[in-house]
Design a protein around this nucleic acid. Structure first.
Lengths: 247, 247
DNA sequence: GAGTGGTCTAGACCACGAG
DNA sequence: TCGTGGTCTAGACCACTCA
């Protein structure tokens, strides 16, 4: 067994966690300034800040430079349903949330070219998709199509967001295989900013590649969910014939 | 666009990253002591340590208290294959690695009782499963069965690890549904110690629940993969009739 | 015991945000 | 402008590892 050495930062983090969970500090509220908290706990500011850093990593506290530390509102957890062929799930699922969508045309750089199996610098249509709950960003999706395969109304200049969503949700006939790869990592600075999370809060990264009957990659999507409020669920059912024991 | 403010810790981290990737510091090697590095970069030790913390979070550096900072060996990436009914995949997949297995009987506490849908304090068989590559732990799995469903030779006192692995890999006849839930988070102190990773390196957490034809939960597994060397892959193929466009 | 990392202090100065 | 957090310093002292 490991002996848990109670460091000051752990003790302070525990105390703040407790005060948050008991409602002494309420959701959305600003905590006392770091200087005040440091005085209250009789520690130096770096020590106090390291305690707050722990809470940030858990998604309990959000720091806003120049304004203060805020108790993060507990948001509805979102579950990405995997193993479904249309992106419909994702989109309709995000429906109750406010969604910001943006479409642009870019050139495939190396990573995307590999993913979509197209030559480097091929034209791609990118759809950027941010779901919000209230003012808080909730998830981030980047969806790429080879330019010639993108639905025509997506490539028009600034199509209405509702049209984009409807388009993505529509079933596409030719898909035969969908691969979804998931990994856990810390967000980049850009991702953290877009999602308004700390760079020390783990995110679930999902890369979805859909292939048509000819083996061509028709669409690739990069989804990003903050680890404290999103997960992915895959359900596999066995048909009766598969259920037969093999041994 | 966000203006990237080049802080000293970022600059130092970038430089060390570069030196590692160019082989100036080789895998497994010890870095100069923090005091030496601080002198070389003319920063204070806390600043230098915060730079090293970034590299730890990326899995590039491993700190060993009292010995030094070491360049982590790049390990083979492991991919968990989802959507498969037997745990066989996981086990056989780990086969080329050295596997440490341990079996114990425990009582279901609240979280496990919910997961397995059994009364609290029910007896459970726990299989702890750590895959190693060389001396480095690679992944962690905890598998739970209701005691009465556990294969008999698992409940024997200290069965041979090979027997356990063989048992888990054997197809179990009655499974009808498998649910796999994935999330990203930072490891607990215990998990980080077991996997020899930093608590700031994200892990992919996979909870797998298998149900038999009667709806009873037959087995639950908690898998943990360090984010820098493990991911999960789910492949969905459409049968021809499903492929028919619906609209 | 010598050398390493772990934690912490008590400040300084800079950058951001809101009024 | 003022209060906030962001970064950094130059130490001190403790805990761990290894010879």
């Amino acid at each position: 067994m490991i002996r848990p050495v109670p460091s000051r930062r752990e003790a302070i983090a525990d105390d703040l966690r407790h005060q948050i969970s008991t409602g002494h500090f309420k959701a959305g509220e600003r905590l006392p300034s770091e200087a005040q908290l440091a005085t209250r706990y009789t520690v130096s500011t770096p020590t106090l800040r390291s305690a707050l850093a722990l809470l940030q990593g858990e998604g309990l506290v959000e720091k806003i430079h120049g304004s203060g530390n805020f108790v993060r509102r507990p948001l509805r957890r979102i579950t990405y349903l995997g193993g479904v062929v249309e992106l419909a799930t994702w989109i309709t699922f995000s429906a109750p949330l406010r969604v910001t969508t943006r479409t642009t045309t870019i050139e495939a750089h190396s990573h995307l070219a590999t993913l979509l199996n197209v030559p480097p610098r091929s034209p791609l249509t990118e759809v950027l998709h941010i779901a919000h709950e209230g003012k808080t960003p909730h998830s981030l999706a980047r969806i790429y199509f080879p330019r010639d395969l993108a639905p025509a109304d997506l490539t028009a200049a600034t199509p209405a967001p509702e049209r984009i969503a409807a388009r993505l949700a529509a079933p596409r006939p030719l898909l035969t295989e969908v691969q979804e790869r998931l990994s856990a990592r810390l967000p980049t600075q850009e991702e953290a900013t877009a999602l308004r999370i700390s760079t020390s809060l783990a995110v679930l990264s999902l890369t979805r590649v859909a292939t048509d009957a000819t083996g061509r990659v028709v669409e690739a999507a990069l989804l990003l969910l903050p680890g404290d409020r999103g997960d992915a669920l895959f359900t596999t059912c066995l048909s009766p014939e598969e259920r037969t024991p093999r041994a």
